[in-house]
Design a protein around this nucleic acid. Structure first.
Lengths: 184, 184
DNA sequence: TTGATACTGAACACTCTGTTCGTTAACAAA
DNA sequence: TTTGTTAACGAACAGAGTGTTCAGTATCAA
């Protein structure tokens, strides 16, 4: 724990307040005044820590550690990140829901998408022995499928275990990816 | 063309103004005042046609006809909607970009997702001979892949022809879907 | 031509934003 | 414990945006 205890307390109170309010009203309906009241801090205090509402949202993303360096690549398996990540999502469900769910306002999606795309792309390029334009399109499809599952899950549109989600993700993507890699 | 010419003129001016402004500044940065100025109409006129900014956005969606009933199913082929829809997107690129692109604010995504999910689901259920829980997860993956391509494309992150996008979409999804259907 | 109706434009109360500043409280380090 | 530093408070502020009202004007279809 670094720094002043007051700072930690304040920042955490603000971040938690925003997440709670997003889940109640949706991101766009939440005002800075709401956050201040919920976190029970002074207005000037808020602005001494965060530039605006968005800033609070992004600070939450960074502390989520969306892609923890848990790349325990189970030998040659494709997309080894899948199951650990679904499990990580389950542990942080309400936070992920506030960030990536429908009520989240879509601002965090770009972050998550970019991070995940980098992981997927690295893996495909490594296996293909080099970059290729068709790989980039494949990355988009794979990332879209994965985040689609995450979003539907945290929003409660579907109920499943991380293992079931992992199986569905693999069933949908791996055959196509394998065929494409063989074709190159 | 039904109704009063003045009404038509005003509504169109407002809708066009919003799309243009979204492409310039992003949805959340556009104010009703901006729209009024760009469309060159009085404030009270705006509120006599639309409840708010969102209302204008949704009115655009309805007129897009996202899923035109162009279901010219090329005999047994899977996901026959793909190529025609990519072509339709190309024709309405700036509108689709304003609605589904990153600057769009994510409000329209839910609409598109639901519409497309219904189409995909119908097709899979028909081929599987009935509904199944694993099919629902598959639908989410397929829709995620398709909309991922659409978004990346209209946002200019990738450059490709509709035919190339169609090929990439098929390459990514069809093998997995076929395998899953056989397994049932 | 006429009756209906859409548009105008200004004014209004309201909410939210982001900043400022003097005062008070909490902190880490000596 | 003392001391210098820094955070938090809270009230006040200007500015921007929202959604409504209303009397007056222009445009419409028939």
């Amino acid at each position: 724990m670094s720094g002043d205890r007051r700072v930690r307390r304040t920042r955490r109170a603000v971040q938690d307040a925003l997440v709670a309010l997003i889940l109640e009203k949706g991101y766009s309906a939440v005002t800075v005044t709401d956050i201040i009241n919920r976190a029970d801090i002074g207005r000037s205090t808020f602005y001494s820590h965060f530039a605006d509402k968005q800033d609070v949202l992004f600070s939450n993303i960074e502390e989520l550690g969306f892609l923890h360096p848990d790349h325990a690549v189970r030998d040659g398996e494709l997309f080894a990140f899948s199951l650990p990540m679904f499990e990580h999502v389950r542990e942080q469900r309400s936070l992920v829901r506030a960030l990536l769910g429908r009520r989240g306002g879509g601002l965090a999606e770009a972050h998550g998408e970019r991070l995940l795309a980098a992981v997927v792309r690295d893996e495909l390029v490594a296996r293909a022995g080099g970059p290729a334009p068709s790989l980039d399109l494949m990355v988009i499809c794979v990332v879209g499928a994965f985040l689609g599952l995450v979003r539907a899950w945290v929003d409660g549109e579907i109920s499943a275990t991380p293992a079931e989600l992992d199986a569905a993700f693999r069933a949908a993507t791996v055959p196509g990816v394998r065929a494409a890699l063989d074709r190159l």
